[in-house]
Structures are given as structure tokens and as C-alpha cells.
């Protein structure tokens, strides 16, 4: 028990002296995971709308792939990018390995299938009445997609929240392609791994609390958006 109290006391102390280094880590976490979520949502939602509304050959296969992609292990996404971005790899010339850019790319790979999959499920669940109603408007395909997107707005916000929650909490991908370099590529999750590995459990728990608070704040904002649209 004494050990547990020590850890809690150290965690409070670590959070209490919220220095510039911790601020930097928190800021990079928000920027990397935020950008990755935006990229994932901007590309994934249209794909999801197409998969949910469209009737075309290969739709089933595409949906299966997207749904499977929702469960892709982060370390695998990181590994793929590591090989691609390695100096001798196909995109080695970009010199992007162990930079925040590589971390954004890795997390966007994880966010994309979630944004696409959740959106596809949301529009596929539109009721028959709603579909008939939209079809009666006689819009172009893009127009139909836009109106449907408005209809399932809470679902899209939910997809965004799910994507952000997924990427902000993963450690495998950002550790492999980011390298946890202090002041450059260190984010909350990789910092937690580092602190735990070095037996500074209090600091690790403190960072964990910070990560939870961040996830909670983002989720609160998104849920408020979701409810406003749903109620209004």
C-alpha cells in the first residue's frame, strides 16, 4: 500500500510542477493527434458516405476492408511507415522518419478507416423514409451525399470522436516512427512508456491523468456539438 501512496503523491507532484517540457509534450500530442484526426476525417467521411450510400460492385469488399482497418494494430501501421520512410525505403528521400510529420501520417492511417467505417454505418442506418425523402429531392450524387451527411451529422461527429480517441491513446505507431525524441517527437503516450520503463511511476501516472483529461475535454466538446445538432 505504501508503494501506491508514493506513486499517487509523486503523480500529484509531477502534475503540480507543470513545466515547459510537459507543456511542449501536451502541445505536440494535441497537434499530432488533432491533425491526424482532421486528415482521417476529411478523407474518411467522403469514403464512408460513398460506401454507405453507393450501390456498386466491390462495395462489400471495400466495406469489409474498411471495417477490418478499424482494428489495425497501431504498431503495424507504424511498422509499415517505418519501412516506407527508412532511408533506403521508397519514400526515404523525404527524410521524414523520426519527425512529427511521420507521426501524423501514421496516426492518420489509423484514423481514416474509423472515420470511413463509422460514417458508412451511420448513413447505412438512415431510415427508409429519410432515404425516400432525399431521393425525392432529385439531387446529383454529390448533392445526395451532402444532404445525407447533414442527416447523419451526429454520426460523423461520433466518428471524429472515435478517431481522435483512438489516435491520441495509441503508443505503438508514434513510438516506432517518432522515436520519442525529447523536445521533438515526444508525446504523452510515449512519455508514459519512458517514465514507466525508468521506474518513475509517479510521473507516468501523472502523464496518464493528463492524457485522460485531454481525451475528456475533446470528447466533451464533440458531444456538445453532437447534441446541439441532434436536438436542434
Amino acid at each position: 500500500m505504501e508503494f501506491l501512496w508514493d506513486v499517487i503523491r509523486d503523480a500529484v507532484a509531477a502534475l503540480g510542477d507543470f513545466g515547459p517540457e510537459l507543456r511542449e509534450v501536451l502541445w505536440l500530442t494535441i497537434v499530432v493527434s488533432g491533425l491526424a484526426t482532421v486528415i482521417g476525417v476529411v478523407t474518411g467521411v467522403p469514403v464512408g458516405l460513398g460506401l454507405g450510400l453507393g450501390r456498386f460492385r466491390g462495395r462489400k469488399v471495400a466495406l469489409t476492408i474498411v471495417n477490418a482497418g478499424m482494428g489495425i494494430p497501431p504498431v503495424l501501421a507504424g511498422l509499415v511507415l517505418l519501412v516506407v520512410l527508412w532511408d533506403d525505403g521508397p519514400l526515404g528521400g523525404l527524410d521524414a522518419l523520426f519527425t512529427p510529420g511521420a507521426m501524423v501520417a501514421a496516426q492518420a492511417l489509423l484514423a481514416f478507416p474509423i472515420a470511413a467505417g463509422v460514417t458508412a454505418a451511420a448513413v447505412a442506418n438512415l431510415g427508409f423514409d429519410a432515404r425516400e425523402h432525399i431521393a425525392a429531392l432529385g439531387l446529383s450524387r454529390t448533392g445526395t451525399a451532402a444532404v445525407s451527411a447533414r442527416e447523419v451529422w451526429p454520426g460523423i461527429v461520433g466518428a471524429t470522436a472515435a478517431a481522435f480517441g483512438r489516435v491520441v491513446s495509441e503508443v505503438g505507431a508514434v513510438l516506432i516512427v517518432g522515436g520519442n525524441i525529447r523536445g521533438e517527437t515526444r508525446v504523452l503516450t510515449t512519455a508514459i512508456v519512458e517514465e514507466a520503463r525508468q521506474a518513475r511511476f509517479g510521473a507516468a501516472v501523472g502523464l496518464g491523468v493528463l492524457l485522460l483529461v485531454l481525451a475528456l475535454v475533446v470528447s466533451t466538446v464533440l458531444t456538445a456539438t453532437q447534441l446541439r445538432r441532434a436536438d436542434g
Partner: peptide, 11 residues
């Protein structure tokens, strides 16, 4: 000075 805080292999 790049500080990784990680094991030998990754560093």
C-alpha cells in the same frame, strides 16, 4: 543533442 529515453535498439 537528441534524447530518446528509449532502449538501445530504437535509439
Amino acid at each position: 543533442l537528441l534524447s530518446t529515453g528509449q532502449g538501445m535498439g530504437l535509439s
